[in-house]
Design a protein around this nucleic acid. Structure first.
Lengths: 198, 198
DNA sequence: GTCTATACACCGATAGAC
DNA sequence: GTCTATCGGTGTATAGAC
């Protein structure tokens, strides 16, 4: 069948177009803010009209959903990339793990708002988009378990401690280190409280 | 001047109308979410048309601004109402202070989003609206100073610790106590780290 | 002064031609 | 699959009634 592209080629082109749209959406989010994304603005950056986006995404929230999956997939990759550099010492290990997540979160405000805050009015991530986030959480549990930290409330606490610093860093000193430099201290407080060896 | 209300009466009526509009706005925020406030919805609850609100507020953001001042003024009042119940013991005092703020924040999601997060797209509080927030922060500094906690980074840390728990409580277990019950433990971690007497 | 009526520009979303 | 046209909704501005 001359001139008829294979089914794979078609699927590949569709997937590439989806990727271009998502990249454009991230661009808009970083330029004007996550909540300020408009379909017309995204469409313009991929040389389309706004309604054409509906051929690739069911709704604006579906774009947010794919971006949510994007963000947590990348986070998972970053966290696992440091997994083999993790030292044996428990405190040093938790410090590195926390620092990696902190730096990842703080380096992109729009991404952090999408991943960790409920800043978009009607948006709730779908179970599929949530999957990599659950995977990252499972990794955290496994990571802490290596040092004997297995109680749910202890894991909850570690998330609260790091999250509190991230939020303030982004809100009150974006690009600075006012709260970033408190991270190691907080991890040590945490380790002390759990009775981990100094 | 029979039938001509005094200047005071007029100002009083205007102020009362402003109050009614703000109360209606809070109602909408709690019913549908802070970002879902629409002028038409607020107007309907005070038996007006949307454009009439512009006789009392310059813009929608001006309503958010007045609500922001509202929230921090109330917070300040709540915090000061417990000020005379503060025990002498440093740890117990910081525990009570933290608990009071935690409970206040957690009891109203919309209010917390307005006070402590940047969830409304174009909104930035005016200096006047910010004043009670600054006052509350000054109170916190003075409170901690009574126990020898004066370094900026130590104050920052206390805010991050409590704030991290508040955010997770509202996001992951609204109405529950999953993170609330970790608050005293966090305060003790903090006190230990600062070397406060046990 | 206060409110209404009307209008504008923009948004997400849909219908239908090609 | 992409387009044009359009719909109901939003915040906002203004002219004019009372």
């Amino acid at each position: 069948m001359l001139g008829t592209p294979s089914r794979d080629r078609v699927a590949e082109r569709r997937s590439a177009t989806r990727r271009e749209i998502l990249d454009a959406a991230w661009e808009v989010a970083r330029d004007h803010g996550l909540a300020q994304i408009t379909l017309r603005d995204v469409a313009q950056r991929v040389a389309m009209r706004a309604p054409s986006l509906y051929s690739h995404f069911d709704s604006k929230n579906a774009i947010y959903d794919a971006m949510f999956a994007d963000a947590w997939t990348e986070c998972l990759a970053v966290m696992r990339a440091t997994a083999d550099k993790i030292p044996n010492d428990a405190r040093a290990a938790i410090r590195l793990y926390s620092r990696t997540f902190f730096d990842f979160a703080v380096s992109d405000l729009a991404r952090h708002q999408l991943m960790n805050q409920r800043t978009i009015p009607g948006f709730e991530p779908s179970p599929e988009a949530y999957a990599p986030a659950v995977e990252a959480l499972d990794d955290l549990h496994a990571h802490l378990a290596r040092y004997g930290v297995t109680r749910q409330e202890d894991v909850d606490l570690s998330i609260a401690l790091v999250g509190g610093l991230i939020d303030l860093q982004l809100a009150n000193d974006p690009g600075g280190d006012r709260y970033s430099r408190l991270l190691d201290r907080v991890v040590d407080m945490y380790a002390d409280n759990l009775g981990l060896p100094a």
